[in-house]
């Protein structure tokens, strides 16, 4: 029980306070913005689901800027970490969509070949 409690204190203080000493908002901000650029490059803007997470990422970066201005570093860091992971998720979704589209295109080509095969077969 004692161990659990001390672990909790450590975790709570790390999550909310002491990590500020290791990662500062400026570093995290650069990281989050890079993730957003990555999502844009992956085509996240063109799929509604990916675009939604990209927007969440951008909104949270904007929110973080307000927190930074108000010197609320903890809140800023939280928002920036969320922004980063949302942008990463947007990348994953955009990549999946691209691969699925490629597969669909290939299937449509097969269907076209099949139609042609039947037509030629009928002529023969």
């Amino acid at each position: 029980m004692h161990r659990l409690w001390s672990a909790t204190c450590l975790l709570a203080s790390c999550g909310l306070f002491s990590c500020a000493a290791t990662v500062n908002p400026a570093q995290q901000s650069a990281q989050s913005q890079a993730a957003v650029r990555g999502a844009v490059e992956a085509g996240a803007e063109h799929n509604p689901q990916a675009a939604l997470h990209l927007k969440m990422a951008r909104d949270q970066i904007q929110q973080a800027e307000q927190f930074i201005a108000a010197e609320e570093n903890e809140a800023a860091l939280t928002a920036l970490q969320r922004a980063e992971i949302d942008a990463e998720l947007a990348v994953s979704i955009a990549r999946k969509v691209r691969v699925e589209q490629d597969a669909a295109l290939m299937r449509s080509k097969i269907a076209e070949l099949r139609t042609e095969a039947t037509v030629e077969g009928a002529v023969q």
Binding site: T8, C9, A12, L16, T78, Q81, R82, I85, D86, E88
Partner: peptide, 20 residues
């Protein structure tokens, strides 16, 4: 975080990251 401090900001934040 939930077990140690239910309803805390830390719980919510870590849960958000975990969901993603």
């Amino acid at each position: 975080a939930y077990e140690g401090d239910p309803g805390s900001r830390s719980e919510k934040h870590l849960a958000y990251l975990a969901e993603r």
